[in-house]
Simulated assay, not measured.
Amino acid sequence: MLCALIMAGGKGTRFWPLSTEEKPKQFLNLIGEETMIQMTVNRIKPIIPVERIFISTGEMYVDLVKEQLPEIPERNIIVEPQGRNTAPCIALSAFVINRYYNDATMVVLPSDHLIGDENEFRKVVTSADEFVNKNYESIITLGMKPTRAETGYGYIRYSNNETKVNDHKVIKVDAFVEKPNKEKAEMYLNEGNYLWNGGMFLWSINNVLDQIKKYSPNTYNALEEVETTSEEKLQETINKNYKDTEAISIDYAVLEKSKDIYVIPSSFGWDDVGSWEALDRYRDKDEAGNVLVGDTKTVEGENNLVISSSQSVVVEGLSDIYVIEHDGKILIGKKSNVANIKELKEII
């Protein structure tokens, strides 16, 4: 039985000022009419019913989850008392899901990624599920075939030890590699046995709990009570014990130590939409190459990024700039410097 865990606790600081701590990017409609978290849930619903879709988030975002995803059962909203990275989040969620679906398989998905070919994405997840069902101790990660020498992503180096499930290769992982500099990223692209790490995993819940118990025992011991406590005292138990977990990523806590990790090379148009440049890549453009969002327009200008959430914005006679308005704040600069917007927060 396949369940989904969608991690939605991030603060989305890279998209400031549009994304704020009060309403981070997973709750914004950055790409289309749906918010990022709505897109994530709707993408997986054809193969996993809503009663088996769980959302992990912070207390301050629970109302946003309920507002944007009213079909998700309230018990399926897993509330982290504080952000302590992905290993405690996944451990907590595994214990909670195990209360309702014992020994299920779990696919872990970020809430704020873009998938172009959603049908192919679901086929990959289905193949990964089949592999894990036949190989209980295995961990599957989805690796994206790189299309450029990207320095903003971690990479997965894979071996030549491969098998096939349906139409998909399942290959043994050699190593997880940190975000490279430009020279190394170009080397990875040329060598051909590196994939982008999209932070999506699939495993048996009991297996990942065994792995956490082995490699991150403090986290396991702190949360073990979650699986057996009464429903009435569940959140109280979480609040009491969560602070005693080890604040560490699942990559460092488990994946870099586990011996049975595989990757499925995937080509379904993935992007983590982690930058303004990504937004510029995927938003529809007018005939002059302008991205216009909200009550905005350009006159005799091209290749601009103009986004407004509450004000009317008109750009006349200018090209290659960004204009971003949110809640009365207006940021204007060279489009080539759009990645530096976050640094302006200190000035404002």
Rank of each mutant, 00 (worst) to 15 (best):
L2A: 11
I6A: 11
M7I: 15
G9M: 01
G10R: 08
K11L: 13
L18Q: 00
L18M: 12
S19M: 03
T20K: 10
T20G: 05
L28P: 04
L28K: 14
G32D: 15
V41G: 02
R43Q: 11
K45W: 00
R52N: 09
T57G: 11
T57S: 14
G58R: 13
Y61L: 09
V62C: 03
Q68Y: 15
E71K: 08
I72C: 09
P73L: 11
R75W: 02
N76G: 09
I78F: 05
I78H: 05
E80V: 02
Q82I: 11
G83Q: 07
P88E: 05
I90S: 01
A91N: 01
A94W: 00
N98F: 00
N98W: 00
Y101H: 15
N102L: 02
D103W: 06
A104K: 01
T105K: 12
T105C: 12
P110Y: 05
I115W: 13
D117A: 05
E118A: 10
N119E: 15
R122A: 06
K123A: 13
V125H: 05
T126K: 14
V132N: 04
S138T: 11
I139A: 06
I140Q: 06
P146C: 06
E150Q: 05
T151K: 12
G152S: 12
Y158T: 02
Y158H: 15
S159Y: 06
N160M: 06
N160V: 07
N160R: 14
T163S: 15
V165C: 10
D167M: 04
K169I: 00
I171P: 09
K172H: 03
V173F: 03
D174V: 13
E178S: 13
K182E: 15
E183R: 14
E186F: 06
Y188F: 15
Y188T: 07
L189K: 11
N190C: 00
Y194L: 04
L195H: 10
L195M: 12
G199L: 09
M200R: 08
W203A: 15
Q211R: 14
Q211T: 04
Y215A: 07
Y215S: 04
S216D: 15
T219H: 07
L223A: 02
E224S: 13
T228N: 14
T228Y: 14
E231I: 12
E232R: 12
K233H: 08
Q235H: 07
I238N: 00
K240D: 08
Y242I: 00
T245R: 04
E246I: 01
I248L: 13
I248M: 10
I250N: 05
D251T: 14
V254W: 03
E256T: 15
K257D: 01
K259T: 08
K259N: 15
D260S: 10
F268P: 09
D272C: 13
S275K: 01
E277H: 03
Y282G: 06
D286W: 02
A288Q: 13
L292R: 07
V293K: 15
V293E: 09
D295S: 14
D295K: 14
E300F: 12
G301W: 10
N304A: 05
I307L: 14
S308Q: 03
Q311N: 13
V313H: 04
V313A: 06
V314Y: 03
G317M: 08
G317L: 07
L318Y: 06
S319H: 07
D320N: 15
Y322C: 09
D327H: 09
I330W: 00
I332K: 14
G333F: 06
K334L: 11
N337R: 10
V338P: 01
K345C: 01
I348L: 10
